Amino acid sequence: MTPDRILGLQEKFAHILGPLSKAYARLMRLRAQFYLSGKWASWRPPAACISVGNISWGGTGKTPVVSWLLDWARGEGIDATVLTRGYGGRPPHLPYEVQLLSPPREAGDEPLLLKRTHPQARILVDPKRVRAGKTAGRNRTDLFILDDGYQHLRIQRDLNLCLLSPRDLDEEWNRVIPAGSWREDVSALKRADAFLVNTMFDSDDGCIETVARIKLTHLGKPIFFFRVTARGVANALTGEAMDTLDGTRFVLVTAIANPDKVCQTCKGDLGEKPVRHLVYPDHHPFSVSDWQAIVASAERNACTHIVCTPKDAVKLAPFADERLWTPQLTTTFSAAGSQSFRAWLDERVHILPRKPHAPEETSNE
């Protein structure tokens, strides 16, 4: 079901959903107060912790931001560990440390993508992220990155990054589940240390920046903007690269929260729109039969290429052929103020407490 369709149903039943939304928001405020006051126990990691999360459900770019942070950490000589639920994966044990050759069905698509693009990082999958964090804390770790952690208050964090989409700043502003997509009401934004606004494919970033300033500036937290763009495509099997899809007939395959974003990326960044767009549910576990259906669609539409997102490629590649291509994505930031996101992060992480590294031969209970 598309976001517009969901919004339409929410508006149609607003008289029923409105009171439920207010009750849910009150419960979430009470929950947050219990954690922040210490009435409910929370765990302090033995090293610095950065939470990457959002106020709403759905895709706002958490994985690209986590990936950017891992690149940044590597450049700074920081040993980073990602704590993630691992949506879509079924690990044989917990916590589950993702390896380069982990099966997608065990690791989940996003954790496996993070591991393959950042082999130096530890990626731990466990719905109980405190348990995973304690496991990681027995080894050398300078930095914990808490994926989808804005509402995961059982883990204390040093930096709380709140990601927002253009919809969050517009029609979804302060519309709490079930009447909207927000997980908490607007009061929860006070917990953020910085706001990261995903400008997505909006053609007027100036408009988004203006709205963000109006809605967020009074909170007194820095506002940064980011965009995920494609700089060419690469063959998922051979690694062959192309700068553009211009003139290429291709089927687009997506199993993500915002499929329209990928379609816009193909048209805007790669120079061509898909002949056919096959949309699957977010985190769909692709099978051989799915690939056969995709190939059949490509052949019916005389398409020579099949394009999918990087996280879908880790699931499709095991039974795909050389028709499978994926965009080469990069994440770039801009700032509402004079300080860049990287400079702000360098400054903040520099003053965070670090865990002293134990000798390699020492074991911890």
Rank of each mutant, 00 (worst) to 15 (best):
V288Y: 12
L114E: 01
L324R: 02
L83R: 06
G58F: 03
G77N: 08
A302G: 08
G38A: 11
F195G: 03
P103Q: 10
K273F: 09
E361Q: 12
A293M: 13
I214K: 14
Q151K: 13
L7D: 14
G53C: 07
H357E: 02
S340T: 11
L345K: 02
G18V: 09
K273L: 13
K128Q: 14
L124K: 05
G89W: 01
D4G: 12
Q156D: 15
F226N: 04
G59Y: 05
L278S: 11
L146C: 10
T304P: 05
P64I: 00
L146V: 08
L83W: 06
H305E: 01
L146K: 06
W173C: 05
N258D: 14
R90V: 12
V228A: 07
G38S: 12
L124T: 03
D260H: 14
S363M: 13
G59K: 01
I78G: 06
E76Q: 15
K115A: 10
G247P: 05
C266K: 03
H93F: 13
P318M: 06
T265N: 02
V233F: 08
V307Q: 01
Y35F: 15
R74Y: 14
A293L: 12
T141R: 11
I123L: 10
G75Q: 10
L100F: 13
T326Q: 10
Q292I: 09
A179Q: 10
G89I: 03
N174S: 07
N364D: 09
A335Y: 03
R249Q: 12
G247A: 10
L237A: 07
P310Y: 02
P92R: 13
A335P: 07
D321S: 02
P166Y: 02
F319L: 09
D170M: 13
T210Y: 11
L159F: 08
D202M: 09
S203D: 15
W182E: 00
H305S: 11
A302F: 12
G247E: 13
Q292E: 11
